[in-house]
Design a protein around this nucleic acid. Sequence first.
DNA 1: CGCGAGATTGACT
DNA 2: GTCAATCTCGCGC
Length: 198
Amino acid sequence: MDRATLAAADVAAVARGLLGCHLTAGGVTVRLTEVEAYAGAADPASHAYRGPTARNAVMFGPAGHAYLYFTYGMHWCMNVVTGPDAVASAVLLRAGSVVDGAEAARERRPAARRDADLARGPARLCRALGLDRAAYGLDLLNPASPVRLTAGEPPAQVAAGPRVGVTGAHDVPWRFWVPGDATVSAYRRHTARSQPRS
DNA sequence: CGCGAGATTGACT
DNA sequence: GTCAATCTCGCGC
């Protein structure tokens, strides 16, 4: 995985390319099987939509760094910053299959019944790899980094569909996954705790 | 087995 | 004060 690939302007294409890549952290390696693209300031669903803030600052920096955010009072989710410098696009890592370090992942995720559930979902993936605020802003392409993104086996097929859990912009099919993979989360319409829109 | 609601902290309006 | 790119458990069928 090289920085020029991640820095391409077409976020959707970059997201597709991330499928099959390997993410290593905390003694665990996963093969990415599900991702979502977020087109920065131009995307109403993106955290960068309303401009730079203390939380999303990394997204406005160079590609290849990690953007982690804390949500729902208990979950961390991880993005890979993409696009040209100053363009705040990013790709949310939604799921992966554990290819190494399954025992360490299982210790962090005792609730997972099957191995396929260890990193099935964005918050679960971070939990399985032990990712939290400490990983914010790390350069995923630096060999010395504790969190590494490396090339992997590209999937034979890639499926696309609407993004999950976002409050708006359901029209753009920017969720990509490896069809048939057991670690891909089932599509669930946004089930807001409070009154959903219409 | 599928759906529905609670949990719980931080960032933004 | 309100809301959030979610997960898990419990209840109902």
